[in-house]
């Protein structure tokens, strides 16, 4: 069954969607959208280093993404504005990665694959890494779910219940780094933020509880993957961006549903 490249691509996309949905919900609730984007941008530096050292891109991307996320977490407590700091660090890392790649000969064409994803060339090994990472992230979030939720809702409440918000933030950072690394192959560095934010944002008007929002977001992400891949196959468009476009359409539809419901309620 895994011999067909479309099957492998679909499975890889669903794996990423399942990991990204619950994490993306937290990203939306905690207003970390730009944090996710910046971590993803920095990952290209990890890819460049991995290519230079001729190792698998996964550990390199995880390491740089983690480093970036931890740097930002440390610096943010020191009076520098968080969002501008993210912008500066992310784009510097991205520029550094791009220049580093241009020094390595012969991988110019490959670069586009890492920027926009190359889901159709997912191998069995990649599939194992993606699902392994996805299960790790989903497991981590399921394990810390109530603590994470409390820390997101109200930090004082979290302290009172014996939860350390800093530790929960660290768990999310770790999950983010792993998600970014496994999603590179599927949607590419530049569109990972879309996989995080858009399904969660689309699920928001449809859900009544946090758990429902994460589940619906996972469903939307998986649906966008399947439909987007199908569309890419039929229309001969790039797979990663097509998936994002479908997710955007679902977001637009959910906004319409919300608007209609709001109209009825009034």
């Amino acid at each position: 069954m895994l011999d067909d490249f479309m099957t492998r691509a679909t499975l890889a996309g669903i794996g990423v969607a399942l990991a990204a949905a619950p994490l993306g919900s937290f990203v939306v609730w905690r207003r970390m959208a730009y944090f996710g984007d910046a971590t993803a941008h920095a990952a290209i530096l990890g890819v460049a280093l991995s290519l230079a050292l001729e190792i698998s891109i996964f550990p390199g991307a995880v390491a740089i993404a983690l480093l970036m996320a931890l740097t930002v977490s440390t610096l943010s407590g020191r009076g520098y504005a968080m969002d501008t700091l993210l912008g500066v660090l992310a784009h510097s890392a991205l520029a550094f990665g791009l220049v580093a790649v241009s020094f390595l000969s012969g991988i110019r064409i490959d670069l586009m694959a890492y920027l926009f994803g190359d889901i159709l060339s997912v191998s069995r090994g990649d599939l194992a890494v993606i699902w392994g990472g996805a299960i790790l992230v989903a497991g981590l979030i399921a394990w810390r779910w109530s603590a994470l939720l409390t820390a997101t809702l109200n930090e004082e409440l979290a302290y009172a219940s014996g939860i350390d918000p800093k530790r929960e933030q660290l768990a999310l950072t770790l999950a983010l780094a792993v998600t970014v690394a496994v999603a590179i192959k599927v949607v590419g560095v530049l569109l990972i933020a879309a996989m995080l934010i858009i399904p969660a944002a689309a699920a928001r008007p449809l859900a009544r509880t946090p758990e429902a929002m994460a589940l619906i977001a996972a469903g939307i992400g998986a649906a966008a993957t399947v439909i987007g891949l199908r569309a890419a196959f039929v229309l001969d468009t790039p797979a990663g961006p097509s998936i994002v476009c479908v997710a955007a359409l679902i977001f637009a539809m959910s906004s319409v549903v919300r608007a209609l419901r709001g109209g009825l309620a009034r």
């Binding site: 207003r31 959208a33 530049l190 858009i198 990663g240 097509s242 994002v244």
Partner: peptide, 18 residues
């Protein structure tokens, strides 16, 4: 606003790449 920026950014960008 940050989620709005992220959503618009990636959707326009994805559409542009297509």
């Amino acid at each position: 606003e940050d989620a709005a920026i992220g959503a618009v950014l990636s959707v326009f960008f994805g559409f542009g790449v297509v």
